[in-house]
Amino acid sequence: MFSFFKRYAETIAGVNVYPKISLIIFFIFFIALLWFALTADKKYIQEQANIPLD
């Protein structure tokens, strides 16, 4: 029943694609994040920042 957790399972096919996918996800994620944060509308940002003080 817990055999899934045992180490006898065979090698995942093409495991070396893992780090490549990770790097790509990583890169895209941070570029997109910076892109958004730096280009966001100033008025919108100010509105958000003031929500706790309303």
Binding site: I45, Q46, Q48, A49
Partner: peptide
């Protein structure tokens, strides 16, 4: 912290990056 200091957070943009990163 903004409540106690009675002013908005220093940079909301930075907080967005802070969160996701």
């Amino acid at each position: 912290l903004p409540k106690a200091a009675n002013r908005p957070v220093y940079s909301y943009r930075l907080s967005i990056i802070h969160f996701w990163a």
